[in-house]
Amino acid sequence: MKRKGAEMKLEKLVNYGSREAVIQNLKDAGCTPEMMECIMAHLDEDDMGELLKLLEQYRSCLLGTVHEREKQIDCLDYLVYQIKRNKE
């Protein structure tokens, strides 16, 4: 259910121009439907403190995944290095 007041606050907050654009941004960021629903509820309730907390937690989670993948790439790079070194 859209509330006109919430829609106006939302547009001012993020300068996207529409609720749908915010939802698309959350999808593009990899948010689950449940997470998007929770985030939008906090936006509708004008609960910016909890909203920012959720977004920061999700960002931290994504960054942790990036760091894990970097470590995996480093392991593969080291293995390739060792194989090439032993080949010579």
Rank of each mutant, 00 (worst) to 15 (best):
M1H: 15
K2R: 14
R3M: 04
K4P: 03
G5Y: 07
G5R: 06
G5V: 08
A6S: 15
A6R: 11
E7G: 14
E7T: 14
M8C: 06
M8R: 05
M8N: 13
K9V: 13
K9W: 11
K9H: 14
L10F: 00
E11Q: 12
E11H: 12
K12V: 13
K12D: 11
K12L: 05
L13A: 15
V14D: 04
V14C: 11
V14L: 12
V14P: 00
V14K: 07
N15F: 03
N15H: 14
N15R: 15
N15K: 10
N15W: 08
Y16N: 08
Y16A: 00
Y16G: 09
Y16R: 11
G17K: 02
S18Q: 15
S18A: 15
R19Y: 11
E20I: 01
A21I: 07
V22E: 02
V22C: 14
V22M: 05
I23N: 02
Q24W: 05
Q24L: 13
Q24N: 13
N25S: 09
N25P: 05
L26Q: 08
D28Q: 11
A29Y: 01
A29R: 13
G30A: 14
G30L: 13
C31M: 14
T32V: 04
T32N: 05
P33A: 09
P33W: 05
E34N: 15
E34I: 10
E34P: 08
M35C: 09
E37K: 05
E37S: 05
E37P: 08
C38P: 02
C38I: 03
C38D: 12
C38Q: 03
I39N: 00
M40K: 08
A41T: 08
A41K: 10
H42P: 00
H42N: 11
D44A: 07
E45H: 10
E45C: 04
D46N: 10
D46S: 05
D47K: 06
D47E: 06
M48G: 07
G49Y: 01
G49C: 06
L51Y: 01
K53W: 01
K53A: 02
L55Q: 06
L55S: 08
L55W: 05
R59V: 04
R59I: 02
S60G: 12
S60L: 06
S60N: 15
S60A: 09
C61E: 07
C61A: 08
C61W: 13
L62H: 11
L63S: 10
L63R: 14
L63D: 12
G64W: 00
G64D: 13
G64R: 00
T65Q: 13
V66R: 04
H67N: 15
E68M: 06
E68F: 02
E68R: 09
E68T: 07
R69P: 04
R69F: 08
R69L: 15
E70Y: 06
E70M: 11
K71Q: 08
Q72V: 13
I73Q: 13
D74S: 06
C75Y: 10
L76C: 14
L76P: 12
Y78H: 11
L79P: 02
V80M: 10
Q82P: 00
Q82F: 10
Q82M: 12
I83A: 09
K84V: 01
K84S: 02
K84W: 03
N86Q: 03
N86E: 09
N86D: 06
K87F: 08
K87A: 00
E88I: 07
E88L: 09
